[in-house]
Amino acid sequence: MGQDERVEAPLIHSGEWNIHYDYAVGETATRFFSRLRDEGKIAGKRCPECKAVLLPPRAYCERCFVKTEEWVDVGPEGTIEAFTIVYEPFDGLPQPPYAVAYVTLDGASTAMANFVRGLDLSVPEVAARELAVGKRVEAVFIDARKGTITDFHYRLK
């Protein structure tokens, strides 16, 4: 075999993954999303043992390892627990800037994430002061609800 001394630029082969999934949301989330879509209400599930009101609602409590049964309406107002404002574009994610916050809705034991809308995000320091931990927000329900988590978002009170 002859010695091949050519130096080749490494080849790149392109490929695509486009995997379609049909996620079954299950009976618990079906009830949550149906109520959100049809009535504009947010409900969590209470653990029969530790009594925590879990939001997003789960069919079981991870801590006590029992099934949850009881539904509890929460909100629509709540308190910011943590937030960020995204300024960098990421493939497959929304165009920045956008704000996302974890909010404990009144009556819930846990915080739930969603977008915070209706706020000028152009100056990071200014927007961040508006969105401080402990600030009060309310859930705002859009008109064209489809039974998904973005049927509502948060807005500063």
Binding site: Y23, A24, V25, G26, E27, T28, R58
Partner: peptide
Amino acid sequence: RDDVRLEE
């Protein structure tokens, strides 16, 4: 098993 999500 559409009655449950994977985690359930």
